[in-house]
Design a binder for these strands. Structure first.
Lengths: 153, 153
DNA sequence: TCAAATATCATACTTAAGTAGGAAATTATG
DNA sequence: CATAATTTCCTACTTAAGTATGATATTTGA
């Protein structure tokens, strides 16, 4: 904004200077040759250029590209969504899933038995069955598989 | 682009017309008053306005506000970011972390030993040490702990 | 209702996991 | 360079995990 005012001042000063020069030319040169047309033509050209220059200076700040970058960050939380179809496909029973879930918590067979009010052999039985259904050999693998299938958190 | 050329043509025509008019004024009016300064001033003003008009016409297509709405959807997936400080705090060694990582894959001690080209007793030794450091009793618990601490994927 | 699936528990066994204690080699680190 | 930490491996042992087989009760679906 301040530049615009300064430009106008420069333009005004240039105009004044040019008028002064023209006055001098008028007396010293033009009067002898009487070529007023040439004089007027020169003035026209000079002031056209000046006008273009002023205009460009005044309008330049308007020639700007406004780039609005809207960044929307969608946070895909690691929330657990039970995969019903994977559970059905696995062929696991509800009890087996309970045992598997307890296994994923790091519980021992004894602790799982206590938790579910069952005996250790029962847990072992469920464990063996679910291992075969998940096609794994160890409980750690079963937990990995269960998490991969999204049937346990 | 075509508009610019037509504008220049209009400007040229206007310039010719004005010069013609000026010539007429020069003979009919100016010679009597002898006010060449006024004449030149008028020409200056007219051509300045013309210059500004031309410039504005030429630059108008550039006065365009381009609003680019960039919608960046950053999917914050469940990607694993190793927690350096948690690893340091745990006091685990590099080897122990390797063993823990292999455990999380569901590998047995024998398989880990084969993978790392070590003996089973060595793996057991590392296992016992890392269990104590992580304050757990079983490998399944260790894996849980490791994932919680974000030192394994 | 009756067979099939599920769930429970048991015994006996094998294998893997984990503990304890020690020893030797390697690698950092002051 | 010497000490501490790490890594490696061992033997011997205990405990937990997992397998196999079978029995009994319950539930479920045709």
């Amino acid at each position: 904004m301040t530049r615009r005012y300064s430009d106008i001042l420069i333009y005004g000063a240039s105009l004044a200077l040019l008028l002064f020069l023209l006055k001098w030319f008028e007396v010293k040169f033009l009067l002898y040759s009487h070529s007023i047309e040439v004089m007027i033509g020169a003035v026209a050209v000079v002031f056209t250029v000046l006008g273009i220059w002023l205009s460009s200076k005044l309008t330049k700040p308007q020639i700007k590209t406004v780039v609005v970058e809207k960044e929307v960050i969608v946070e895909k939380g690691p929330e657990f969504i039970f995969n019903e179809s994977a559970f059905l496909e696995s062929g696991l029973t509800e009890r087996e899933l309970e045992v598997l879930t307890s296994m994923s918590l790091g519980l021992s067979n004894q602790e799982i038995a206590d938790k579910l009010h069952l005996s250790v052999p029962t847990i072992k039985s469920h464990a063996s069955n679910l291992f075969e259904k998940l096609d794994v050999k160890r409980r750690t693998q079963a937990v990995e598989r269960g998490k991969y299938l999204k049937i346990i958190p």
